[in-house]
Design a protein around this nucleic acid. Structure first.
Length: 620
DNA sequence: AGTCTCACG
DNA sequence: ACGTACGTGAGACTC
């Protein structure tokens, strides 16, 4: 374990001369850990309060810039004396931060990049300990936050943010934290970051993960930071009108629901609903939840509706309307930024086991699309006047990846020939010609194809298709007979997860499954299915990451000002001037379709569909 | 804080 | 004989 961390040695820098000497020290060391302190976790709303530096383990300092005095001060809210002016500090810092020959080390640098960018300073030449940990240990333990990593690798518990700022309604912003407390906290963060880097960085080369980190993780940071900063425009009028429509529809349904139930109750309470449907009304209950309650999922209610019961259908409809209202039409306007008038999501770069991104506050990766009602919400995502939204999405990327990694000749041929992959699967399995194939036959093949990607089980497939488990089992058996490479792939994935503790994507990204050897059969089976899925989902994630990393340069090379706004796993959304849309589409398509090359010679072609329109619904 | 449900790929 | 389709995030309800 590393030497004990002593917070008492940290410096608080309050004059330009001292800061200059620390900057010189960092320049000489060619390396510095860097961390910003601000007033908000949201970089779009954060004001810079100070920053910390560390040049060697234990040698760390905090530089307060905008601390104010708190309560009890006669001049409450006044500036604390003896702080370097922001402009002066940034001028001293800039030659360090934008100098690629000095390695900046941060933890979740996307945040600091965004904050510093707003102050006109670029950070060029950096390492990110969160992303190094993610490249090495995705799927291991409690995530890649600094506190968890400090605990794990340094045996040290850093001062918690909550301890410094308080919690709940007593929480204060960092600019109101006293300087001694702020210094202990902030300098420690830089110190810990540097120490983590010294532990984690050597593991990249030792464990063969340098390429994943340097090609798929690190270069995505400025790309994502720029996307988040751009945001996307939403039309609040459209959302407001939709919200009214949804409220009206839900209110009407509620009256029907009370009438059919014979009493008023909280429709949104699954517990009350279950008691009414399966208790008082005596409808045939099916599945139970893990707490012993009757399950009232949409599937259960649909089944009851199919048997002729009127109430369950009303509940399903009510839930859809209230879901759209609360999660989208009512919530999204609250995310419109007061200055940019746009919505700025946050992408997590290190949250999933497979390599996918995730989006939050708001989540723009789950905007409705599957129903006509839901799609109306997409019409509220719009381009600025004179521009269009351009959506480019990979066609069947996960099945193409499956054809490659499992090396399935029929699948590869089908993608080469550009034929309908689900129809081909149905034809191969059931001996039905593709021409004039019944929709139901194709639907079943499609469900099986998805099932394969998810680590199929007879139970899951039966559930999905509402067919007996035996029949689902027969389908799976037949599938494995027709595509023996699939079974081999699945067994190989499980074996690798068992033997090595992880599985790999085509680019060598690892997804760890530490519980794959669990003595609990359910836990084991769950991990096995995840291990089957991860190389497929993760390889697709790698491919779109590479496309994103290369996109800015390709657009600039073509002298286009089209800008990448959103990523939705297999889709990229851009904002493009109307006049250059036709030039942008082939550039974007080429980058996306060639994203695997030259590192990986995919055995299947990648196909991208692209379209531009005034709003996201019509572009998609 | 945990559970349930449901939005997306 | 179990109980699951893979990966996420958010809102409402409950305790």
């Amino acid at each position: 374990m590393a030497e004990k961390i002593d917070a008492s040695a940290y410096a608080c820098i309050r004059d330009a001369g001292t800061l200059k000497s620390w900057v010189d020290e960092a320049l000489a060391a060619r390396l510095v850990a860097f961390d910003t302190e601000t007033t908000s976790l949201d970089p779009m709303r954060a004001d810079l309060v100070g920053f910390s530096l560390a040049t060697a383990p234990g040698r760390a300092a905090y530089v307060p810039l905008a601390h104010k005095s708190g309560n009890g001060d006669l001049l409450g809210g006044g500036m604390v004396e003896g702080q370097i002016a922001v402009r002066e500090a940034l001028a001293l810092l800039k030659p360090l931060l934008d100098n690629p020959a000095v390695l900046k080390i941060g933890h979740n640098l996307k945040y600091d990049l965004a904050v510093m960018r707003r102050h006109g300073v670029d950070i060029v030449g950096f390492d990110d300990t969160m992303l190094i940990s993610y490249a090495l240990d995705a799927g291991m333990g409690r995530g890649h936050g600094m506190d968890a990593l400090a605990e794990k690798w340094l045996g040290h518990t850093p001062i918690s943010f909550d301890d410094v700022t308080g919690t709940g309604k007593n929480r204060i912003t960092f600019d109101l934290v006293a300087l001694d407390k702020a210094t202990a906290y902030a300098a420690e963060d830089a110190d810990v970051t540097l120490r983590l880097w010294r532990v984690l960085k050597p593991r990249l080369a030792a464990e063969g993960m340098t390429a994943v980190y340097e090609r798929l993780e690190r270069p995505l940071v400025p790309v994502i930071a720029a996307m988040e900063a751009r945001g996307i425009s939403i039309d609040r009028q459209i959302l407001s009108r939709l919200s009214g429509d949804l409220a009206q529809g839900a209110a009407a349904l509620e009256e029907d629901i009370y009438r059919l139930a014979g009493e008023r109750f909280t429709v949104g309470s699954p517990k009350q609903l279950g008691d009414i449907l399966f208790g008082r009304m005596g409808l045939p209950g099916g599945a139970k939840t893990k707490t012993g309650q009757w399950s009232t999922t949409a599937q259960v209610l649909e089944d009851l509706a199919a048997e002729g019961h009127e109430l369950p259908r009303k509940i399903v409809d009510w839930r859809q309307l209230t879901k759209l209202k609360s999660t989208y039409t009512d919530a999204l306007p609250g995310y419109v930024h007061p200055q940019t008038h746009r919505v700025h999501t946050s992408y997590a770069l290190a949250s999933t086991t497979t390599g996918r991104l995730s989006s939050s506050e708001p989540n723009l990766q789950n905007i409705p699309v599957r129903t006509a009602e839901g799609r109306k919400i997409r019409t509220a995502f719009v381009a600025e006047p004179g521009n269009l939204l351009l959506s480019a999405d990979y066609s069947q990327i996960e099945l193409r990846v499956l054809a490659h990694v499992a090396d399935i000749p029929q699948l590869r041929q089908a993608f080469d020939d550009g034929v309908d992959i689900h129809a081909m699967t149905a034809s191969e399995m059931f001996g039905v010609p593709v021409a004039g194939m019944p929709a139901e036959v194709r639907r079943r093949a499609k469900a099986i194809n998805f099932g394969i990607i998810y680590g199929i089980s007879a139970f899951g497939l039966a559930n999905q298709l509402s067919i007996p488990r035996e029949e689902a089992g027969d389908y799976i058996k037949r599938y494995f007979e027709r595509f023996p490479g699939i079974k081999e792939y699945m067994e190989a994935a499980k074996a690798q997860a068992r033997d090595k503790g992880y599985v790999e994507t085509i680019f060598g990204r690892r997804a760890h499954y530490p519980e794959i050897r669990s003595s609990n059969p359910q836990v084991r089976a769950f991990n096995e299915r995840a291990a089957i899925n991860a190389p497929i989902q993760g390889s697709a994630a790698d491919i779109i990451r590479r496309a994103m990393v290369r996109m800015d340069a390709a657009l600039a090379e073509a002298e286009l000002t089209t800008q990448m706004l959103l990523q939705v796993h297999d889709e990229l959304v851009f904002e493009t001037p109307e006049g250059e849309t036709d030039k942008a589409i082939p550039v974007i398509r080429a980058v996306m379709e060639n994203a695997a090359m030259p590192a990986i010679d995919l055995a299947v072609p990648l196909k991208v569909d692209a379209r531009a329109a005034k709003n996201w619904d019509e572009a998609h």
